[in-house]
Amino acid sequence: MAPVLEVEGLKKKYGSLEALKGVSFKVEEGEIFGLIGPNGAGKTTTLRIISTLLTPTDGRVIFLGFDLKKNPEKFREKISYLPEEAGAYRNMKGIDYLEFMAKFYAADDSEAKKYVERAVAISGLGERLKDKAGTYSKGMTRKLLLARALMTKPALAILDEPTSGLDVINSLEVREMIKGFTKEGVSVLLSSHNMLEVEFLSDRVALIDRGLILDSGTPQALKEKYQASNLEIVFRRAVQ
């Protein structure tokens, strides 16, 4: 079966700064693929390029057979992106925000309604969805946004640091939400500098540092290869 996403030799320059120096990896259908690396490794730039926010300087991104450079709109139809520091419209009620976003993806009102119902169930926010998003805590906002990203059952959900800034309880809940969703055929590409989180969530991971993929594989295979007990040690040894 062809992979959902293929990234080949992806390069990105900001002026003289080379953020990506030729990143390549593949994401298979229904798998969670984790990009792990320290701050400034190039994770966010990679995700932003795939979600059509940034244009690559060089390289190729193929998603469901479509080339990013030629068909960015096809990417937007089937991809959901959750940025690291995303927010919701403060003056909109949570439920209205979900409805607003659902309408972009739905063919008609009844489909949009289904998306919203799914999001309500995913978020677990209950009655609080009737309140304005401006009144939500960081954890609630993150759950709302994650529900928004997953409600359309996208072919690929791109999640940038999905548990960033959340407390232990909220982080656990969000991780369970993500894990549960791949059972429905959604592929997930996520990034995190929390390597233990990625180890828990991901089927396969890629180690990224200074714009380059150092190694990739299943967490177990990588731990065996580098004779390490967890991904943090794997990463340290891969960098060395």
Binding site: L53, R76, Y81, P83, A86, G87, A88, Y89, M101, Y105
Partner: peptide, 14 residues
């Protein structure tokens, strides 16, 4: 300021 622009730019609308 509300960090909603990035999400808006990735929805299927020109």
């Amino acid at each position: 300021q509300n960090k909603t622009l990035e999400t808006l730019l990735t929805v299927p609308v020109s």
